[in-house]
């Protein structure tokens, strides 16, 4: 519970005149769920994009699994054990639902310079892929084309792909957004069950979900991490109440 898996120091990113990320410090410890909350446009997705390596920070450092990864490309970070889910669903439209998760498993199963054996008949890939679909409740759609799924199902697939690998850190950007109540509840149970084996950085607007799952919370406003602490501390924090919690929670579903 004490070693930080992810350490972010003084991370900054500007877009023109906007400080999208403003000297952010945060840690994610082993086996914990850190929730990052904040109003629309606070810079949460921009933060994740920098952690995952898709966006280069202007300054600051990111350490993951004991090494500095600030300059590493996305695929190298993923190989070190970082998985990401996207706020805006990003899946393989032209492939089947199973293929989508199969690729996520394959990414962690050594190199893919294998030219002969059929991947879809490889139990080492299909079994974990099916298991991930089972976890999110999408197993009965395994053979369907990913393009044809409903919006909620797309969201479930997005999560399945993040879970399917052997990653030790999950960066989840509003995973429940767009899901029905039943699926949402299932996800909350699922994430709680994963806590022992994985660390999670969770971005979430729904405060019930946040307070149900988070071990610690970081509040972002205008690119700054204005407060960090246990849920009770955050709930009691005057600054947070004024800047964020006091106002009606802006959901963007």
């Amino acid at each position: 519970m004490n070693t930080p898996v992810l350490e972010v120091r003084e991370l900054s990113k500007r877009f023109g005149g906007i400080n999208a990320t403003d000297r952010v410090d945060l840690d994610v410890h082993e086996g914990e769920i850190l929730a990052v909350i904040g109003p629309n446009g606070a810079g949460k997705t921009t933060l994740i994009a920098q952690l995952a390596g898709m966006l280069a920070p202007d300054s600051g450092r990111i350490r993951f699994a004991g090494r500095d990864i600030t300059g590493l490309p996305p695929h190298a970070r993923a190989r070190l054990g970082m998985a990401r889910s996207f706020q805006i669903t990003s899946i393989f439209d032209a492939l089947s639902v199973l293929d989508n998760t199969l690729l996520a498993v394959q990414a962690h199963a050594g190199h893919s310079y294998r030219f002969w054996r059929r991947a879809r008949r490889d139990k080492k890939l299909t079994e974990p892929a099916m298991a991930a679909l089972q976890q999110v409740g999408l197993a009965d759609k395994a053979a369907a084309n990913a393009r044809g799924l409903s919006h909620g199902e797309h969201r479930q697939l997005e999560i399945a792909m993040a879970l399917a690998g052997t990653s030790k850190l999950l960066l989840l950007d509003e995973p429940m957004a767009g899901m029905g109540g039943e699926e949402s509840a299932r996800m909350v149970d699922l994430l709680r069950a994963l806590k022992s084996s994985k660390s999670i950085l969770l971005i979430e607007h729904d405060m019930d979900v946040v307070f149900a799952l988070a071990d610690r919370i970081t509040v972002m406003v205008d690119g700054k991490a204005i407060a960090s602490g246990a849920p009770e501390e955050i709930r009691a924090d005057e600054n947070v109440r004024r800047a964020y919690l006091g106002v009606e929670t802006p959901g963007d579903a």
Binding site: A52, P73, H75, S90, F92, A107
Partner: peptide
């Protein structure tokens, strides 16, 4: 085929 369909996603998966 994954890279044809959605290259950024392939990279974030680790390829």
């Amino acid at each position: 085929q994954g890279a044809k369909d959605n290259e950024p996603r392939m990279q974030s998966l680790g390829f």
